[in-house]
Design a protein around this nucleic acid. Sequence first.
DNA 1: CATGTTTAATTGACTCGTCAATCAACAAAC
DNA 2: GTTTGTTGATTGACGAGTCAATTAAACATG
Lengths: 195, 195
Amino acid sequence: MPKQGMEPIRRTALVEATIHEIGARGTLDVTVSQIAKRAGMSSALAHHYFGSKEQIFAAAMRHILTLYGAEVRGALAMAKSPRQRIEAVVRASFAPAQFRPETVAAWLNFYVQAQKSPAARRLLHVYQTRLRSNLLFAFRQLAGPQALTLTRGMAAMIDGLYIRQALRAEPLDPDAAIDVLLAYLDTSLGQKAKT
Amino acid sequence: MPKQGMEPIRRTALVEATIHEIGARGTLDVTVSQIAKRAGMSSALAHHYFGSKEQIFAAAMRHILTLYGAEVRGALAMAKSPRQRIEAVVRASFAPAQFRPETVAAWLNFYVQAQKSPAARRLLHVYQTRLRSNLLFAFRQLAGPQALTLTRGMAAMIDGLYIRQALRAEPLDPDAAIDVLLAYLDTSLGQKAKT
DNA sequence: CATGTTTAATTGACTCGTCAATCAACAAAC
DNA sequence: GTTTGTTGATTGACGAGTCAATTAAACATG
């Protein structure tokens, strides 16, 4: 069977299987065998390519963060005004790809993973910092001294809406979530320039 | 050694040990032995009183939710106006007892637990619903039609600020968190009656 | 109040299952 | 015939839950 050049294929298959499996089970308690099975291979092969379960998780996390980063960057590229930059971050955060149940469940579980694994914590920290500074920069131009408070509030609200989705309690659709956030944005800025 | 009436003592010791152990390790991956050891007894005894690990977790969760519920009810009792009722919920949510790192870490992990355990999900759901309806009721009197959006925003923000604390990323002290929330409240209500 | 009996509390040792990780061996492709 | 892909079987560790046996308090009774 062995064709050559399987490695990248296997790796991505495993990463995606990991995210789906975590999403489906709602837990980090997924076995390498489960992941491997979903990816259509033996668990031994998974170990062969990744070395350890923790490295599989790390790769899955990197994948999610990369996708999210790309989504944000894409949205940001088209934004002209500070107001648009904030809106871009919000919309990117709730884009269909980011708000799929498996993805969100995976996020929640990676939050937990970050509590034990320093590597996971670092990864998460990089992205959170980047996101926050995007918001802060824009808010500074719009609201001066209140910028820090507004940034904190908005970042918290994004996370909170994610959690709700993960818990499937009061499952808001993306548009409703975006509405909540934009309402916050607008009233905070006192209905200034809705450009 | 056997004195009588040990049961309630052992049970509460186990519940508290569970919360501390989860907080300390940052994971639901705590063994019954670890919990029992911290509570100063053998793992066999823990099983004797609770039957299973899941029931220990459920009891710990109930404990946390009960404390939180009591805190909210206490704060709510003194509130006279709708504005004060919202503020009461906010302040109760970030009261020192609720915002201790172990407690917050335990919360996060119970969110995860709720994904697999229907019992945990039910417990969480009851409290979340109660909380939300407290907010919604007050917001209706203050903001009429926007009440639903505001409630969603505020509930999300509370959860999000909790997460931040759990992750120890940008660790806000309780007062800062309350400031963020009250700023949201005030601007949303357009600086009406700050009573 | 001494003594025998029940009973709650308690644990060490054990079972059984599960899972991450390893390894030896085999199968194409080159 | 060497490299790359692949797996079944195995190892070793660990953890939930059980159980039989031990302790000493509580209690009864003459």
